[in-house]
Amino acid sequence: MWQGEARTAEVVLAAADPEGTGKGLPKSVKVIRLRGPREELRRALSRAETAPARYRSVAALAPENDELHVLCTSMTAVTWTKSLWSEALTIGIGSAVPPEESARSFRTADAAVKRATEGRPIVSWEDLTESGLISLVAPETREHFAEELLGRLDDTPTGRTELTRIAISFVRHHGKVHAVADEVGMHRNTVRTRIREIETALDTNLDDPTARLNLWAALQIADDRMA
């Protein structure tokens, strides 16, 4: 819907100042994507179309799927979300961008609405970025990644439970063996042996920052799943 071009800016300008008051183009806008039953989206669209002009927005139903798209100023995004939401809908709020970059907010709103659930029906792009990179990956994908990686520890001599405990301490202390040994109450040489066992099982070198990041991510995902 939003192409991020000059025409988009013109549409926003018209919506931002329908009576020619001179308010001009807003400095930043957000796209809100609502998903749910078509009839419920039509009700939300009706509410959007009858809202006071001061809320400065453009709303349209997507012809190809059950979505309502709303382009509004960043300052009114929260107000719009509250006024349009119903229990039958999930909502994703995009990033704040200049009007000519509305396509970027449209994409980030898509990432946000895909993370919305019945228990958490409203998700913003800021929610995702504040939660870290892991939250940007679909739940089923990240859980598969974590299980595939950590599952390799199952067949080790020491076992997954103990090696996971060592791995958590290892990434927490940035690979400092003495700190790990102190935390887990184990001799440093034993810790080194356990680390080598982890590296062998994962077929990696934990001195490599990417390998350590992957291990940290898998451990975080597994911990979130158990919480």
Rank of each mutant, 00 (worst) to 15 (best):
D154I: 01
A6E: 15
A179M: 07
W80L: 01
A103R: 13
E126I: 02
H69Y: 13
T108G: 04
T79G: 07
N189W: 01
M226S: 15
I198T: 00
E101R: 03
P209E: 03
P99M: 00
N205K: 09
R165C: 06
D207M: 01
H178G: 01
I195D: 08
E162V: 09
R43D: 13
S83D: 06
A222Y: 00
I168N: 15
E197D: 14
L150D: 05
D110Q: 11
S74H: 12
E183L: 07
G92I: 01
T161N: 13
L213S: 13
Q3A: 14
G92A: 00
A218N: 08
K82N: 11
A59N: 12
W2E: 01
F106A: 10
N65S: 15
R120Y: 09
E140M: 01
E87S: 04
S169P: 11
L136P: 02
V29Y: 01
H174G: 14
E162H: 11
L68S: 04
S95P: 02
G4V: 03
N65M: 10
I198H: 02
E100P: 03
T117Q: 13
L215M: 11
L202W: 09
A201M: 03
D224K: 12
P121D: 11
T161Q: 15
T161G: 08
A103F: 02
R196N: 14
M1Y: 11
E143G: 07
G92D: 05
G175F: 05
V31G: 03
A109V: 01
L133K: 04
Q3I: 01
T193M: 09
G22T: 08
T210G: 02
G94H: 07
E67W: 05
A217Q: 15
D66R: 13
L163R: 00
A218L: 02
R33G: 02
I221P: 10
H173E: 03
E148T: 09
L34S: 04
L150G: 12
N214I: 01
E5D: 15
R160W: 08
I122Q: 09
V78K: 12
N214G: 11
L41F: 06
A15S: 13
A44V: 04
A179V: 00
A15Y: 02
